[in-house]
Nucleic acid binder design. Sequence first.
DNA 1: TATGAATGAGCCTTCATTCAT
DNA 2: AATGAATGAAGGCTCATTCAT
Lengths: 214, 214, 214, 214
Amino acid sequence: MPRAESAHAEAHTASGKRDLILRAATTVFARHGFFSAQVADVAREAGVAAGTVYLYFRSKDDLLVSIFERNMKDARTEARAALEGLASPVERLRALARLHLDRLGRDRDLAVVFQVELRQSTKFMERLSTTHLREYLGLMRDTIADAQADGAFRKDVNPTIAAKVLFGALDEMATNWILSKRRYSLVGEADGVLESLLNGLATKTTKDTKENTR
Amino acid sequence: MPRAESAHAEAHTASGKRDLILRAATTVFARHGFFSAQVADVAREAGVAAGTVYLYFRSKDDLLVSIFERNMKDARTEARAALEGLASPVERLRALARLHLDRLGRDRDLAVVFQVELRQSTKFMERLSTTHLREYLGLMRDTIADAQADGAFRKDVNPTIAAKVLFGALDEMATNWILSKRRYSLVGEADGVLESLLNGLATKTTKDTKENTR
Amino acid sequence: MPRAESAHAEAHTASGKRDLILRAATTVFARHGFFSAQVADVAREAGVAAGTVYLYFRSKDDLLVSIFERNMKDARTEARAALEGLASPVERLRALARLHLDRLGRDRDLAVVFQVELRQSTKFMERLSTTHLREYLGLMRDTIADAQADGAFRKDVNPTIAAKVLFGALDEMATNWILSKRRYSLVGEADGVLESLLNGLATKTTKDTKENTR
Amino acid sequence: MPRAESAHAEAHTASGKRDLILRAATTVFARHGFFSAQVADVAREAGVAAGTVYLYFRSKDDLLVSIFERNMKDARTEARAALEGLASPVERLRALARLHLDRLGRDRDLAVVFQVELRQSTKFMERLSTTHLREYLGLMRDTIADAQADGAFRKDVNPTIAAKVLFGALDEMATNWILSKRRYSLVGEADGVLESLLNGLATKTTKDTKENTR
DNA sequence: TATGAATGAGCCTTCATTCAT
DNA sequence: AATGAATGAAGGCTCATTCAT
C-alpha cells in the first residue's frame, strides 16, 4: 500500500485526496454498511467537507464502485507480478489463492466491503460479475486447464466448474473470516483449501467407486 | 396479477395472507433489490393495502428476515426427511448438496433473495450466520467427520475447512446461476462440484508429491 | 357515581356500554394523552372491539367532547342540589369552589383529562369556553354580584374579573394537584383559596393606601 | 409573506434563521394547533425548505419546547431588569403581574402557544412545570413572603397558596383573552386582578366573621 | 349489536446532491 | 479547489375509520 507512508503528505495532490476519500469510504462502509453510511460520514472521516466528495466522485454509488475498481486494479498488478515467475500451473493456482486471501486478510475493512457491501443488489452484482469477476474466474479456469494439459490435473473435471468451486471456497473463507469473532490469519486458510480441492476428500478406495451416477 | 386467483383462495386464512405477502416480498425484493423496493410495492404485488403488511410483519426488515426464517425451516424439514434413509455419510453429503441447489434452483426469486439481498450488510449477515448458517455448516462438518470415521474420507483434512469449501462452492454455483443469462439446471451442478471435491483435481501422481510445502 | 355499583351489570344496557367506553377513554386519555392514545387502546380498556366504539361515538374527538359533556352535566346536577339550600351568596360561592375541587379530586384520571387533555387546541377550547365555561363563569359572577348586593362583598370590584380570578385560582389548584408527585386532598385547598380571595392578601393598613393607581 | 423582507435581512446569520423558523412555528402552531400543524407548514411560513428546519431543531417537539425556552429566557431577563429598581415587595408583585400579561398581550400567537398548545399532554406539562414554572411560582411565593415580612401582607395566609392563586388568576386572564372575540388590552387586567387579590372581595364586616371554619 | 381485519391517507424525517461563496 | 448550508424528494409507518360477516 503506497499510501501508507503519509496520508497527510498526499492530501495536497489531487489523486492523494481521491485516495484519502476512498480510504475513508472503505472504513465507513465497513463500519455502518453502505446504505446506512452517509456521504457526510465519509467526508468527516476523510477530513473534508461533504461537497468535496463530489469533486472526486459522481455519486455515492460511484464511491463503492471505485473502491472495487481501484482494488481490482491493484490486485491485478500484484497478481501479474507474482505469477510471472511461476511455470507450474499448480503453483500459479496456489499463488492465486494465497494472493486472494492475503489481500483481503491484510485489510479487514476492505474485506468487509468486498464480501458484504459490494453485494448490495443485483444491480452491483451483475455489473461486477460481468467484468472483473468473469475475468478473474477465467484466469482460474485457464490455469486449471493448463494444469490439465500438463497432466497435473485430471482431464475429466470441467475446468469451469472447478474454477467456481475454488473461487467459491476462497470466497466463503473470506466471508467466514470477517464474520468470525476469532482473529486468525486468513491467508493461512489457503493451503487447507487447496489441499482439500487438489487431492479430494475421498480415500483412494472411495474414489474408484462410481458414486456420482444417479 | 396472474396469481390473484389462487391468492384469493388463500386470503381467507390468516397464515394464507401472511404467506401471500411473503411471496410477494420475495418477488419484489428479487426484482428491485431490498433497499430500492418499497413496502407499497410489496403490498401492491400481494394485492393488499400497504397498512396490511404491518398487520403481519413488524417492519420492512422483518419481511426480509421472515423470508429467510420461513425457507430455512422448510429446508430443514425437507433435509431431515431426505437424509433419514441414507446410511452412507457420502450419500448424505451428496443429498445435502443436491437439496441445497435444488431448492434454490426451483425458485429463482427466492434464490436472488438468498444469494444477494440477504447479504445486505453485516447486520443481517451476522444475525443469520450465527444461527442458521452455523447450524448448516455444522451439519456438513459432522457428515464429513462421519465419512472420515467410516474410512470413506481421508482423515488428514480438517472437516471444518472441508465443510466451508463445500458450502462456498455450492454458494458460488447458486450466485453464478442467478447472475447468468443462460438458463440451466442449478441442481445439475451438484454432482460436478462433489466430483471435484471428493476426488480432487490432481492426478494420482501429483497427489504424491508434497506440493503444499511453502 | 352511579356506575360504581357494577360496571359489568350495566354492560348489558345500551347506555351502560356507552358509559363503559367513556370511562375507558378517560383512563386511557389520562394515561397516554389524547393524541398518543389510540382508539384501539380505549376499546381494549373497555373490553370491546375497536369497531364497537363507533357504534356509540362518531369519532375520537367525540369521545373527548363526550367526556366533557357528560361530566359537566353531572356537575351541574350536583351543583344545583348543593346550592339549593344555601341562602347566603358567600356560602354558595364557597360551596361552588368546594364542589369544583371535590369533583376533580375524587377522580384523578378525569382531572387530568379536564386540566390537560381538553386543552388540546383552540378548536376544543373555543367550543368549550363558549358554552359550558361561559355558563359556569356566569354563575360565579352572578353569585359574586349577589354578595355585593347583599353588602357582603365590596361593590368597587368588577364581578366579572373577580369570577375569573376565582375560577383561575381553582383551575390552577387542580392543575398543580395533578402534576404534583405529592398526594394530598384537592378539595382541602378550597378554603385557603377563598380565604385569600375574600379577605385579600394585604393588611388593613395597606388596604387604605391607593396602590392601584398607575 | 409580509415578513419575508425583514426576514431576509436576518437570514444571513445562523441565529437569525433559527429565530425566523421559531417565529414561523409560533404563528403556525397558533393557527392550526400543534398536532394539526405540519412541519412543512412551518417551513413554508419561514420561507425555507422542510429539511432546513431540521438543521436547527431536532424534531417537531423540539420546535414547541424551543418556543417555550426561548421566551422564558427573554421573560426572565426582562423581569430581572424590571424588578431591580423596585424595593417594595408589593410593587414587585404588581410589576410581575403586569409583565406577565404584557408579554402575552403583545403577541397573540405566542399567547396562544403558551396558553393552549404547550398544554398538549402531561408529557410537556410535567417537563415545563418541574423547571421554569416551579421557578416562576417560587419567585411569586418569595415576593409574597417578603411582603409578609414587611408587614404589607397578612401573615396568616400561606404564601404558596397565594402564589398559586395569583398565577392561576393571571393565567385565566390570558386564556380568556385569547379565546375572546373582543379585542381588549390584556395587561390592563393586571390591576383589577391585583386589587381583588390584595384587598379581597369581602367588605370589612364580612372579614371579621369566621367564615372559613368548616 | 358486535367484531376485528383491512384500508389508505397522511406526515415526520433523512440524506444525497447542489451551488453560492 | 473547497466549503457546508440549503434543498426537497422520497418512503416507512401509524392509526382513525369502515364494513363484511
